[in-house]
Amino acid sequence: MLNLKQYNKEAIWKFLSEVPDPEIPVISVVELGVVRKVKVLTEKVIITITPTYTGCPAMKAFEDDIISKLNDKGIENVEIKTVYSPAWTTDWMSDEAREKLRKYGIAPPIKGTEDKGVLFGSDSKIVSCPRCKSKNTTLKSQFGSTACKALYQCKECLEPFDYFKCI
């Protein structure tokens, strides 16, 4: 039987960085911060992941895509472990990933602007339009096309856009 110890962790992380987010294909599962740990044992590789939101429907796709990517690379025995602590936060997203989001048309999360208050007005933030960069934008709904996004509209170019919520 193949000894998986021949793969070092760095190589596995590199393979994982080739797995795109199923719903936002411009960033990888690694850039999103969903992959938390890689463990290489003699007989198997254990990948620890954490959900962005508890009910994120992409989690199953994350698992399947990670397994199939590693299978393609010759690693047959892959185990996926899901953990909830520490809770996923948008702070784990790199600046590079944020820029990729913006180019894709999704306003990236603004660091340190977690919505904590009970009412809208209690913590206002300025979200720039990812298309025309105008700061004259307005929140349409706290809930957008996926669990992790809110719906905004730009008052300058009038385009609606997704904002990646800061949690």
Binding site: P51, Y53, T54, G55, C56, P57, K140, S141, Q142, F143, G144, S145, A147, L151
Partner: peptide, 16 residues
Amino acid sequence: EEDIAMSNIALDLFGQ
């Protein structure tokens, strides 16, 4: 917007 919001809330609750 509300249809999406309520479905999103449902998803969160199922996840929990």
